[in-house]
Amino acid sequence: MSGIETAIRENNPALITYVTAGDPSLEDTEAYVHALDRGGADLIELGLPFSEPIAEGPTIQAAINRALEAGTTPESFFDLVADLETEAPLLVMTYYNMILQYGSEPDPEPFVERAAGAGLAGIIVPDLPAEEAGPLREACDEYGLDLVFIVAPTTGGERLDRIMSRATGFAYVQARLGTTGARANVSSATHESLARLEEYDVPKAVGFGVSKGEHATEIIEAGADGVIVGSALIDIIAESDTPAADLEAKARELKAGALEGVDAPEPEQP
């Protein structure tokens, strides 16, 4: 079992948090990661900013712009990661072109080698479906990194089987169609997706639109092994006067919400 899978299974229900590295600076990111780690995050995703984030809603787009304006580069990102000491394993989330361009020729291997060297445990690539993931998969296997795949509400049939058979670490269950961003409610698609995934023995974590403790409760009740929260944390970073303290508190709220989902009585069967 990989470090990521262990982190989820041993801390089930797990809290997975996302922040964009370099928003508003890498020094701030360092402080935020420690705050989330203290607040009970079981895995921490760090976004390496790319100029064309087609899977992100306005909140994370703005965070990426701030990070790029602050001059965040793959090299400064890896330097930060190499210095971070956290309980929670770290993952990098970035777009495929950033991974391809890291070496001198378009090739994913140099990025993966550097990511492993910096201590990252896994990679999530929002614009890389399983069909195109061969070369990155190979490099990840070689360096012992998990490649986390996204399962969308529209994913089904043979493709779902194929993705789940290749998934390592956990399956990132996209709660709804569309882009990332905090929402008021948990979507009904979440329940349907988790039901479809029940037969696969891979931990499932749900993201896209999760912002409150009660969302976490509902998602864990519906059968997930973890919840993923990003935009709600970015909002804190963008708006709070005491972001580190507020991030820690938000992590506690979400983790507590998730735990409540475990203790809750089984929903009545129809």
Binding site: V151, A152, T154, T155
Partner: peptide
């Protein structure tokens, strides 16, 4: 090279 939601 598209997000999973668009693949189908």
């Amino acid at each position: 090279y598209v997000p999973e939601a668009l693949m189908p």
